[in-house]
């Protein structure tokens, strides 16, 4: 159990404040409670089944997507619309409580991440942990992100895909 809840890259541990370990059930509860959630999809998501699962999750919960790196093209090729930002750019906007969000409807209150490079995501989550008390962060990668508010544990592929399957249902 212990190895599941230390950061995937163990030296990413930043201090006493650690993420809450969540299951798909809790993660879905967080999405349901959120008024303006956002889904950040990184460039590691390139192929199925991950790509399809990611798109299915976004569609199921009808969450606007921000793509980082060059993930915009990957999703566009699947006719999935998204908003391209650099991961540091979107993090910079998310930490501003006055920002109006990707749809101009107001700052987001939950940001769910998948598929960003681990260490840069860890740094972005650290920014949000310290400077964005107005929102919660949730990571559904197969790696435990201690800088998030809530994170899936470290998992092997099979278990992770099973978790993501569960995220597709209410």
């Amino acid at each position: 159990m212990y190895e599941r809840i230390i950061p995937w890259q163990p030296t990413a541990i930043a201090g006493p404040k650690q993420a809450l370990l969540v299951t798909p059930k809790t993660a879905k509860m967080m999405i349901k409670r959120a008024k303006r959630p956002l889904f950040v999809v990184g460039p590691i998501i390139k192929e199925d089944p991950l790509l399809k699962l990611t798109i299915d999750i976004a569609k199921k919960w009808n969450i606007p997507i921000v793509t980082t790196g060059d993930a915009y093209k990957t999703l566009r090729d699947r006719e999935m619309d998204s908003n391209p930002y650099g991961i540091v750019e979107i993090t910079n906007l998310l930490k501003d409580p006055e920002w109006k969000g990707v749809n101009g409807e107001g700052q987001h209150d939950l940001v769910m991440f998948i598929g960003c490079i681990y260490y840069i995501a860890s740094q972005g989550l650290s920014t949000l942990k310290h400077f964005a008390p107005h929102l919660k962060t949730l990571t559904i990668c197969k790696f435990f992100h201690s800088n998030a508010d809530a994170s899936f544990p470290n998992m092997k592929d099979e278990e992770w895909l099973n978790y993501l399957e569960k995220m597709k249902t209410a």
Binding site: T91, N92, G124, S126, T127, F131
Partner: peptide
């Protein structure tokens, strides 16, 4: 400046 703390302490 945009800060991404590497350490919380």
């Amino acid at each position: 400046p945009f800060y991404a703390p590497f350490c919380d302490m």
